[in-house]
Write a protein that binds this DNA or RNA. Structure first.
Lengths: 179, 179
DNA sequence: GGCTACATGTAAGCGGTTACATGATTTA
DNA sequence: TAAATCATGTAACCGCTTACATGTAGCC
């Protein structure tokens, strides 16, 4: 079963949602480490329904607009728990077009190379700022048994990763300028 | 044009190679930030030939085994340079199944959660060790205009990223045990 | 009345993986 | 002579993106 299905089960374990709301979730909180478009989510929900891992109730908004409120079945909850307990092999290093460029960058002039590093740096600095702002919403580390604690750990990684990226880019700029 | 095509052009700019050798390259040095299987590489080489970005010469090994030695055309070199100079938007945070698990990990027992963090930690420590061993081959930072320098920068990122991952995992284990 | 957000779907195509398929060369 | 490596290809399938397609509800 695809990871996306577990992501959907996980989100539905927190709160019953429509496909539309799931799509929004994938574009906000979860998007730091997973994402999906509605064109992928609706078919997956159909499949999960067939597999009896989720069920839905039709609600009417206004006079006739139907929306499907999805929730986990007992079976769905079990499938989620089983996946959560599965030890994962470390993921293969993800593809990275910028580092591919950099790998061939000796074909560029020193100025061009420094320029491309600086362009990445300002973007990662902005991303770091965004994540740090998000972190300020926590005035302390949440208790370990809450979903806020899980969120906090994941956010922490994002911040540390961006700090490292900025540090690395600055180091590279420095080394390029040294000669 | 897909990134894989530029990766192939980049590798061929260093050295003329067969599809088989390109495949090996994608499983060693370059695999830290890009990879591809032979089933994808051979069709891409056919397309690049049609687009007149690469050309090949047939060589005979032994008595009859034909191999195609690919190299860049003038046009191919220009395409590579054009791509190298293209400023890249920061890549979207890559998908990460482990962090997805962790995001839903408040459903686990404290012991189970610590266990999954420790399992990741030993894997990242091994990867860090591997990259550090690789780094020892450089006894100093190579001159900035060489391809070794490009390699060195990319390797440095790998090491810093793994260091950060280990640091983060240790911090998480600590926080999980604190309560 | 018009705009934005809510809400749900399908189709075509791309990049990539896994598996199928074949055969020559080198080395132990 | 058997196994590992060199060498080149194709087919089916999967996950995902982009685009197509439709209609309602709420707000200004």
């Amino acid at each position: 079963m695809s990871t996306l299905k577990y992501a959907i089960l996980g989100l539905l374990s927190k709160k019953s949602m429509t496909g539309y709301e799931l799509t929004k979730e994938f574009n906000t909180s979860v998007c730091e480490f997973w994402n999906a478009r509605h064109s992928q989510i609706y078919p997956e929900l159909h499949q999960l329904t067939e597999e009896n891992l989720v069920k839905y109730e039709v609600e009417i908004t206004g006079t006739c607009l139907e929306k499907k409120l999805y929730s986990l079945t007992e079976e769905g909850h079990e499938a989620l728990m089983k996946w959560l307990k599965k030890p994962l092999r470390m993921a293969h290093t993800p593809k990275d077009e910028f580092r591919l460029q950099l790998f061939f960058s000796h074909n560029l002039s020193p100025e061009e190379r420094v320029h491309m590093l600086e362009f990445q740096l300002i973007q990662h600095q902005a991303r770091l700022q965004f994540l740090q702002n998000y972190q300020e919403k926590y005035d302390s580390i949440p208790p370990a048994n809450t979903d806020q604690f899980s969120e906090y750990m994941v956010l922490l990684y994002g911040i540390m990763r961006e700090e490292t990226s900025c540090e690395w880019l600055k180091k590279c700029i420095c080394m390029c300028r040294a000669e």
